[in-house]
Design a protein around this nucleic acid. Structure first.
Lengths: 343, 343
DNA sequence: TTGTAGGCGTTATCAT
DNA sequence: ATGATAACGCCTACAA
């Protein structure tokens, strides 16, 4: 069922049908009604592929992220998809995976599909390598990075001040009497680096020099949630064995922290009395575990909401700033609260 | 950069370029090499929109589910997307929302995009209304329902025997000495109904008649995880108040159960000693909460894996059965274990 | 107000 | 082995 078929049935030309479909003005009410009727009777469905080809605009936008299973990313994808769909765009969501090659492949898919715009979720896209890739391969469509920024004319960024956020965390811990915090990081990403920097700034205020700062790295082959949990346990065991003097731990993400909580309980170490524990990302996991996890809310969902709004503005040629910044909160729960005494 | 541009530069016709791109045989090695070279030099990217129009096949598949934030669905989407992408298809993932109207809209998007096939995740798509919709609107492409089935020529289904699964749960509880289980359900879905049926079958074996069975319903406006958690708490409070004699509760999904756990702790009711708690879906949440949640693994990820395999077979015209069934396991954790005595 | 014709970038058929 | 041409379904000047 094409506009040709409808045109024939209605005794008009295809262009007239097209006009009716797209609510153009300057059409006889009578013919419009007749065509409308035929369209419904035959339940005509327009062909977005043909339309995209003709209009040089697919109304598709690409969403790239390393792994949709990361719980903080899932909700981001959700809000973006909802907003875009509401505005008549269709989303292609791709879990790229870790390697640059995988990311390049996904970018190529976006190119082939001729997406009108894209959102990249995660600071992992804030790299020089990605900048080069974008300059050569996606320089003609608007792109928004959620939690990252690249200085290119067609790229927009919403960043979160995570460095300050983690610095605040350390300060918060200190205010509760925790004097010797450790930091557990994971894969090297710009976001992770900012957090580590914040941690170092924080402990410096406690009189701990950067080189004395206790920082462990828990690498994880895959963004599989169950795996991250286990890695959190493992690294925590190692940490408390090698540094029994540590009185608090800040983990790069909630799940690592929760893995830590489990190990600490297993070892008979009381949280928050003996060790305070703090996660990052404010995922639901942190509400569920016991003790409930104090966590840094780095506003990832809000970041994504903004990203979609910015992309829509750019697509519709509205003026927009290229860079936005959001700030974090600490969500206080039971895994830190030394002052309160008994849990 | 189109095949015309390349053709001109290479001094050949567009068809020749097309042939090179698609690795057709019967081309002079010399020209192939020359064209290949030009393609790379100009980093030509093929236009899948044009290709789709010409080939009458978009290589796009649609994935519909009510809400991607449901954690058991997230992983399903992930595995499907990975498999499809690997096979050269691109996925459009749509969180439809609850209402039929929303679902119809999403189906329309799939139609407009001329997807080659679709996967519907969730038993909510196993309804008469959906069958009618599919017969009229998507009768010409293969569709697979994950955790559901409709008897239409182009529809395939992978179902899980959840009725038997929940029946097993009750039997399992009984084997631990729990004699009076309650069931907490939620929105009415086919899957929910099967589970309820299983529960009733189960308690009948304990000498409880269907009308005596204690069943509560916890409605939730939205599939928002945080909200589900709260609803679990609320309904549990009501349940234990009205039925203090209940010694175990089976919840429709893990998060409801965990909300229940929280409330029970608040009320000073010991799990598993006073009340045994059992979830469904085997999500990561159940590993994290305390006590860790015993849960029915209903194989949703495996179901989705199968769904994508079946869809690929159907797309490539391989013979496939229309209906598959998987069976559940019980994942035993600390929220039931009366026998062991002390936790 | 409506129709004609060309173009969007491919693929496929039929010649050559 | 290669080229010309039509077709895919739609949109949009431009013409009438």
């Amino acid at each position: 069922m094409t506009i040709y078929d409808i045109a024939k049935a209605a005794g008009v030309s295809p262009s007239t049908v097209s006009r009716v479909i797209n609510n153009k003005k300057g059409i006889n009410e009578e013919t419009r009604r007749r065509v409308q009727q035929l369209l419904e009777e035959n339940n005509y469905i327009r062909n977005d592929t043909a339309r995209g080809l003709s209009m040089q605009s697919t109304k598709i936008i690409g969403i790239l992220l390393e792994d949709i299973r990361s719980s903080h990313h899932t909700e981001s994808v959700y809000v973006i998809e909802q907003e875009m769909t509401r505005r008549g765009y269709t989303c292609i969501i791709l879990s790229t995976g870790r390697t640059s090659e995988q990311k390049r492949n996904c970018v190529q898919i976006l190119e082939q599909r001729r997406v009108d715009g894209a959102i990249f979720i995660g600071s992992v896209f804030e790299t020089e390598e990605m900048a080069v890739l974008l300059r050569t391969h996606l320089s003609n469509i608007p792109i928004v990075i959620a939690n990252g920024y690249l200085d290119l004319p067609n790229v927009y960024g919403v960043v979160v001040d995570e460095e300050k956020g983690v610095e605040d965390c350390v300060e918060y811990l200190a205010s509760l009497g925790y004097q010797l915090p450790a930091f557990v990081k994971s894969e090297d990403t710009p976001s992770g680096q900012h957090k580590e920097d914040g941690f170092i700034k924080g402990v410096e205020k406690l009189g701990i020099s950067p080189k004395e700062a206790i920082i462990y790295s828990s690498l994880c082959e895959e963004a599989n949630p169950g795996l991250i949990l286990e890695r959190g346990s493992q690294i925590t065991e190692q940490l408390v064995k090698e540094h029994p003097e540590v009185d608090s731990i800040v983990y790069l993400v909630d799940l690592l922290a929760i893995g830590g909580l489990m190990k600490l309980e297993e070892l008979g170490i009381k949280v928050p009395q003996q060790i305070g524990v703090l996660g990052i990302d404010n995922t639901l996991y942190g509400r569920i575990c016991k003790p409930a996890l104090t966590t840094l809310n780095n506003k990832l969902v809000e970041t994504s909401k903004n990203a979609s709004r910015i992309l829509l503005d750019a697509l519709e040629k509205n003026e927009t700033s290229h860079k936005f910044m959001l700030f974090t909160d600490i969500v206080e729960r039971d895994s830190t609260r030394k002052k309160e005494g008994i849990l």
